[in-house]
């Protein structure tokens, strides 16, 4: 058991980072019924921006810059690639999302020259080494779960108690009726992407602190896993996404700890298929019946 403890701690931390990405998926799915395949790549771009900005400017400038640029990116993707297809079949929007993902990866390849960008200047305080239960780890591992939970509470407050939050809830219940009730659909949807990208940017800063470099494909896996977490927890549900992400993060690291690293990715997808077949609505999802 002693040997598994560091993996458990790591799992909680990775789970927190997945949770921050998963919320982006679950919010967008709740409102647009769209799997935003580009979200993982937004996460990767946030990592790249962090690498570039932290190398050239002080920390109190680089962190806000990462957040702002990522939010702008998310907003632009929605306006450019999803808004024109609002009346199109769902599959067209999904294809557009895949296209955006492809585009972002290729642009990132062009700008980075295809080389993984080393994280030379990680964010100072959280990348320090600390000792926990006799195990050495980076401080980010400890900070992540708390930061995640705090952000989730802030988000839940936003959704339950503000006007825009009410709009989001209304749009996710019934797109067309909400429009008839005078809710400005486009600004609500943009807000969703802004929140999702903001959280992905925070997640990226935490995630890549633990990694030596950011490659253009770095976003794919965490993105897909966060999506699985969102499905596992019941897509459209924020608490579900968070719980699902922590469970996936922990089990993945434990599988690594038991010596089956090859299967830590496969486990996540096996879980996905099992969940989809046994309980497609996930842990906390609402049951939706299809009308003819």
């Amino acid at each position: 058991m002693q040997g598994l403890l560091p993996y458990l701690i790591n799992g909680v931390s990775v789970g927190g980072q997945y949770a921050l990405i998963a919320i982006g998926y679950t919010l967008v799915y709740g409102i647009l019924r769209l799997i935003n395949f580009a979200h993982g790549d937004v996460f990767m771009v946030a990592g790249l921006i962090m690498v570039y900005s932290s190398a050239t400017m002080p920390i109190y400038l680089s962190i806000p810059l990462v957040l702002v640029l990522t939010v702008i990116l998310g907003f632009t993707i929605e306006r450019a690639a999803y808004k024109p297809l609002r009346t199109a079949p769902r599959m067209s929007v999904m294809i557009s999302a895949i296209g955006v993902s492809y585009l972002i990866q290729n642009l990132a390849f062009y700008f980075t020259g295809g080389l993984p960008q080393p994280v030379t200047n990680p964010i100072p305080w959280i990348s320090d080494n600390v000792t926990l239960f006799g195990e050495s780890t980076k401080r980010v591992t400890l900070v992540t779960p708390f930061l995640t939970v705090a952000l989730v509470f802030a988000l839940v407050y936003l959704i339950n108690n503000t006007k825009i939050g009410m709009g989001m809830r209304a749009v996710s219940k019934d797109f067309e009726t909400a429009q008839l009730m005078g809710i400005r659909i486009n600004s609500v949807i943009s807000m969703t992407f802004v929140i999702g990208s903001f959280l992905a940017a925070v997640g990226a800063m935490l995630y890549f602190t633990n990694y030596p470099s950011v490659a253009i494909t770095s976003g794919g896996m965490p993105g897909l896993k966060a999506f699985v977490a969102a499905v596992f927890g019941g897509i459209g549900s924020i608490p579900g996404a968070v719980v699902g992400a922590f469970l996936i993060g922990i089990s993945e690291e434990l599988i690594k700890g038991l010596g089956y690293s090859t299967f830590s990715d496969a486990f996540t997808f096996a879980l996905l298929i099992v969940v989809l077949c046994v309980k497609p609505t996930g842990l906390f999802g609402e049951k939706v019946t299809d009308k003819v």
Partner: peptide
Amino acid sequence: VLRLKSDYLAIATLGFAEI
């Protein structure tokens, strides 16, 4: 997997390929 619909089918088959 074929009991699933549209985007769930997509993500399940994607997962299968990764496995």
